[in-house]
Design a protein around this nucleic acid. Structure first.
Lengths: 235, 235
DNA sequence: CGGGGTTCGTGAACACGTGAACAAGCGGCG
DNA sequence: CGCCGCTTGTTCACGTGTTCACGAACCCCG
């Protein structure tokens, strides 16, 4: 397959943006908003890097994937860059969200106002427990998971958030996919699989804690170090 | 590769395990527990890979960092591997956790029983709001953030979870570090910085949603493309 | 209008992570 | 007791991501 050099910098022929870059764009976006609120009209890659907690060269390279929106000797125009980046991230439109599972976490997420700096309205809450179905959380009535296809079609749900116990997660994911949802954010502590054309991201509290545990434990002398009374944990 | 290298598997030597591998160890651990509960005594890299949702070669390579705990032609002994991995991850001891900020999310986290498959007891809850201080959540009395140094010392807090609004996060992080906490998990939607010797991980809901938004939006035709039904996406 | 200082954009080197392939080693069977 | 099939552990090639370094472009000032 000859690369055919598909118009690398044409305005329309979108370049492919590396995953790592995509994951940083929201950080830049947030930093730009803060800068805007602080009254700045332009910002250098160095300053933006500082705000986003990354390297300045990385910022420039990341932003260059979006296009040449900077001005040499000056920096980036905050408002213009905000606009371009919002557009690229798809934040110029709303993406309706459905939350499945209204336990502790699900309710907390439902109550989390200003969801993702707006743009992600929670249009549906779903649970499998008949005792929860019918109650109202954050102004939205909880419906039964069996109704997912109707609900998804009705509200044009784009993103599904799974906040169920681990055991139910795969089933819920399958139902979401079947209902036409093409982006899933999984909070359940288990691995789930979805078709290739569906985006899947996960947030796993237990995993995060265990990763921290690993490094913490390395600092205090490596595994199987008997019973060091955690005193004298100098640095 | 001379095995006589610097005591590669001595209790102290400790090879350096790549970050990407460390992040997967908890997944393997969970899969091993499931296999154990299902009654298996041995497991192949292939099966483990399937359960953890990764490549089999990757599993073998990851596990080889821990040591040669497999048996060729057979697989890995589930129980032994569980033990070794728990030890390496520091799960043979408890790591006391303090949660700072008891809004929606903080309360949900505090109520999240079986925290990280246990091993992470919540020993302290902290907030800056005097109206919240003194209340009880999940059996623990909320104390004021000013008391952090005492609380941390008293309970030997190892891990601090930040669940405050963005504006307070950096200040809280500084306080945690000053109180001797050396691992931090940040849920606040902002970038915070800590000294090099402190481990920091973040969970950012808004960022996750925006990443999903990016790919969702690419699928539906790319930025600012007016209403192009973008046929033929033959990448 | 030209020089100097500043900052972007990018090419190239480097580090890191991934995946395929294969030899080494183990258990089981005849 | 030796062969055969299976699975690990490791090597190697590749791709992705990061960082440095530097030319190009721009603004400001004299």
């Amino acid at each position: 397959m000859p690369p055919a050099a598909p118009s690398p910098s044409a305005g329309r022929g979108r370049r492919k943006i590396p995953e790592a870059t995509v994951a940083r764009l929201p950080l830049y976006l947030r930093s730009l908003f803060e800068s805007q609120h602080a009254g700045l009209t332009t910002i250098s890659s160095e300053r933006l890097a500082e705000l986003a907690g990354v390297n300045a060269a990385k910022v420039r390279k990341d932003l260059s994937y979006l296009g040449s929106y900077g001005t040499r000797g000056v920096g980036y125009d905050v408002e213009y860059l905000l606009f371009q980046m919002s557009r690229e991230l798809g934040l110029t439109q709303d993406w309706p969200v459905a939350i499945v599972g209204l336990g502790n976490l699900g309710q907390a997420l439902a109550n989390y106002a200003g969801f993702g700096d707006r743009g992600f309205p929670i249009v549906a809450l779903v649970d499998a427990d008949r005792r929860v179905v019918g109650t109202t959380v954050h102004g939205v009535v909880v419906r039964h998971v069996d109704e997912l296809p109707d609900i998804a079609a009705e509200h044009g749900v784009s993103i599904g958030i799974i906040a169920t116990p681990a055991g139910a997660a795969q089933d819920v994911a399958d139902r979401l996919v079947a209902a036409g949802v093409s982006s899933i954010l999984n909070f359940a502590p288990t691995v789930i699989s979805v078709p290739e054309e569906v985006s899947l991201r996960k947030v796993d509290l237990a995993v995060e804690l265990q990763i921290l545990s690993f490094y913490q434990q390395r600092r205090s002398g490596g595994p199987s170090s008997p019973a060091l009374p955690d005193v004298a944990r100098a640095d």
